[in-house]
Design a protein around this nucleic acid. Structure first.
Length: 245
RNA sequence: CGUUACAAGU
């Protein structure tokens, strides 16, 4: 079943659901039984195609195999709903999950936060952040990065930086994602200086930027008409062996 | 803990 799961996951991540389902049928013909890994792969596949309907149908199907949705399955659907602009349904699902005795984990919370951030509902995202912080889970670098990203998206760089500083006080180190979110935020509001400064901080703290990070920096330069400096960055990327995409 | 099973960046 592990072998099948690996292949099914591969197909699902490519959106090749017909083939995944046919493999699912094949393994059952060989008297193997799908497990939660199989199901999460397939549900995630449907969710990524925004086929929430199919994901829900599959969720019912699982029960006939004696499988109960676990936290990963719930999280996967919550994310699918968020991506499908159904944030309120996502919140409802989390409540339903709780009523079934499954407690949200860090992934659940950050998924919801991200959904609210995409909607520009920073109050709700921050509220969930507070819930996480007050729970035994605590907040982690992903929670911070998600919330920082929400503020960056809305151009509220002051709040974003406040959180960035707060992270350090809480003993958490920003990672490549955190820096890229912030750099992109500054680039978008036209503050290339702050963006460059963060890039330096990033490198000084031993984090290696990748092409996503550099692209964000360059967009800041280009936005302000500093094409030459942008070229310098792209040269540096090549020097570091990064592929220009 | 044979399956990077689910969360954050251009």
């Amino acid at each position: 079943i592990v072998t099948y799961n690996i292949i099914i996951r591969g197909l699902c991540s490519l959106g090749r659901m017909e083939e995944a389902i046919s493999l699912l049928n094949q393994l059952q013909n060989e008297n193997l039984v799908p497990d939660l890994f199989t199901c999460s792969a397939i549900i995630d596949g449907f969710c990524k195609l925004k086929e929430i309907g199919n994901a829900k149908i599959f969720l019912k199907q699982m029960v006939t195999w004696g499988l109960e949705a676990n936290i990963v399955i719930y999280n996967t659907i919550v994310r699918g709903l968020c991506k499908n602009d159904s944030i309120s349904e996502a919140s409802d699902l989390v409540e339903e999950m709780k009523s079934r005795g499954i407690l949200p984990n860090s992934v659940t919370y950050t998924t919801l936060m991200h959904g609210f951030c995409c909607f520009g509902n920073l109050e709700e995202a921050r509220r969930i952040f507070g819930v996480m912080k007050g729970s035994s889970l605590g907040v982690n670098v992903v929670s911070y990065t998600t919330l920082i990203g929400g503020y960056c998206k809305c151009g509220q760089m002051d709040e974003a930086i406040k959180l960035y500083k707060e992270m350090h006080l809480n003993g958490l180190s920003p990672n490549k994602y955190t820096y890229t979110v912030l750099i992109n935020g500054y680039a978008k509001v036209g503050n290339r200086e702050a963006a460059s400064k963060l890039l330096d901080e990033m490198v000084n703290s031993g984090i290696v930027p990748d092409s996503v990070t550099y692209n964000a920096v360059m967009s800041g330069f280009c936005k302000e008409g500093r094409i030459e400096e942008a070229f310098k960055i792209s040269d540096q990327m090549s020097q570091e062996g990064l592929v220009l995409d």
